[in-house]
Design a protein around this nucleic acid. Sequence first.
DNA 1: TATGCATGTCACCAGTAAGTGATATGGGGA
DNA 2: TCCCCATATCACTTACTGGTGACATGCATA
Lengths: 233, 233
Amino acid sequence: MASDDSSPENPVEAAPGKDRSRDRTATERRILDAAQSILTGQGPAGFGVNAVARAAGVDKQLIYRYFGGLDGLLAALGVRLAEWWQDQLLDDAPAQPPGSYGDLIEMLALRLVRIMRREPLALQCLLWELTDGSGPVATLATARAKALGEWMARTRGDLRPPEGVDAPAVNALIISGISCFVLASRTSANVIGLATDQDATWTRVEAAVRALAQGAYGQGPIKTGFRPVGSDR
Amino acid sequence: MASDDSSPENPVEAAPGKDRSRDRTATERRILDAAQSILTGQGPAGFGVNAVARAAGVDKQLIYRYFGGLDGLLAALGVRLAEWWQDQLLDDAPAQPPGSYGDLIEMLALRLVRIMRREPLALQCLLWELTDGSGPVATLATARAKALGEWMARTRGDLRPPEGVDAPAVNALIISGISCFVLASRTSANVIGLATDQDATWTRVEAAVRALAQGAYGQGPIKTGFRPVGSDR
DNA sequence: TATGCATGTCACCAGTAAGTGATATGGGGA
DNA sequence: TCCCCATATCACTTACTGGTGACATGCATA
C-alpha cells in the first residue's frame, strides 16, 4: 500500500483522458467519494491532496479550488459523517423502550459495538481524533457526539441514573472502552488476551458490556453464565 | 512543533562539530534517548531517521549502522519500554493486599489511570499500536501486556472472579476504557462531555473506574456520593 | 460569430523523507 | 613508527509531499 496508487482500484474510474464531465457538482462528489475511500482504506496518514486527487482521477488543483484545500475537504467530509451517524443511530428506534437507566446505557453501548465493528470509516475518524486534536479534525468528533447526544435525548424518556452514580463519567468510560477495544481489534488479533478474530469473543464482549452497564447502574453483578476455559486474568 | 527541529531542545546537546566521543555505546545511548524524546514529543508521525538523527546531533548513517534502521531502533526502544513498565507497575507493591477480585481490578485500574496520565510516552506507544499493528510496533504492546500480566500474577494471590462473570472480557473493556479516555484527553479538553483539564474531573473518573470494577465484580452499584451539577446524560 | 468564464490539466517549486557510497579521523596494536 | 579498523560525517540520489501559476478547452451568452 505504499507507492502504486495509480492503478484504478477505486470505485471511481480514473481515465486519464481529456476534460471529463465538466460538471462541477459531479466532480465534487467524485472527490468526496475518493476522500472517503482513502480515509477508510489508508487512514489519516494516507489522507493527502495528492492521494485523494489520484484516487478521484482528478487534478489536485480542483481540491484547492472547490474545497479550499485539505481542511475544507475534511470539513465537507464531516458533514457526510454527521449524516451517516444520524442514519446509524437515530433511524432505528429501539424495539421496546428501555426499562431502566442501565437498560438505556446497555442498549446504547451494544449499538455502539455493532456500529463500530461494521464501519471502518468511523474507526479511522476516531483514530484521527486521538492522533490530532486540531480544529478540522475536531469537527469529526463533534458529529459523533451530536448524534449520540440526540439518540440519548430521544430514547431516554424520563429515565434518570440512580442517585450517587456519576453517569457522565461512567458512560464516558464505557464508550471509551468500546471504542478503544474495537479500534485495537482492527490492527491486532489479540487484544489484552482476547482473540478478536473469533465471533465467540465478540459475544463475550457484548456480554461484558452488558455486565458493566448493569453493574454500574443495576442491582448487582450480572451472571452471564460464562465459564472460563483458559487463563482468566 | 513543526519544522524547527534543529534547535537543541532535547536533553542531548547537539553540537554539530567534529567526531564527538568516538564511543559507540555512548552514541547508541544518545540515539536511543533522542528516539524516546522524539516519540514522546512528536508521536509516531515524527519518528523518522532524519528527525532522530537531528535530535541526537548525530549522522543518520549511524542509525542504520548500529540499529539496522528504524525498525531496529524501535525494537531497542521496546526493550527500554519493557523495563519502564516493570518499574512503574512491579516495583510499588500494594500497601495492603486486595480483599476481593473487585478490589484487585480496581487497584490495577487506578494505577493504570495514574501511570497513563503521568507518562506521555506510554500514550504515544499506545496510539502507535492502534494506528499500525505491524511487527515492530507490536513489540511495544507486548512489553505492556507482559508487565500487566506479571503484576496480576504477583498481586492476585488466590483471588478469583465471581462465578459467571467473564473477567478477561470485563477487564479488557475497563483497561481499554481507561486507555482511550486518557488518550483522548491528550488532544481534546472535552471528552464525551467531561472537561479533562480540570482535576475535579479526574477525581470523578477515578470514582467511576471504581464503580465499574466494583459494579462488575461486587455486590451492587457503588454510591460515590456524586451529585450532578450540570447535564447528566 | 465572438467574447468571457467555468472547468479541467500541466508543469513546476520548495521542502523533506529514506536510503547509500565514499571519505575523513582518531586510537590501539604490530 | 606505521598501519588498520572502528567511528563518525558528508554528499548524493530518488521519491514523495503540499502548494501555485500558467495554460487549454468547452459552454453559454451577447
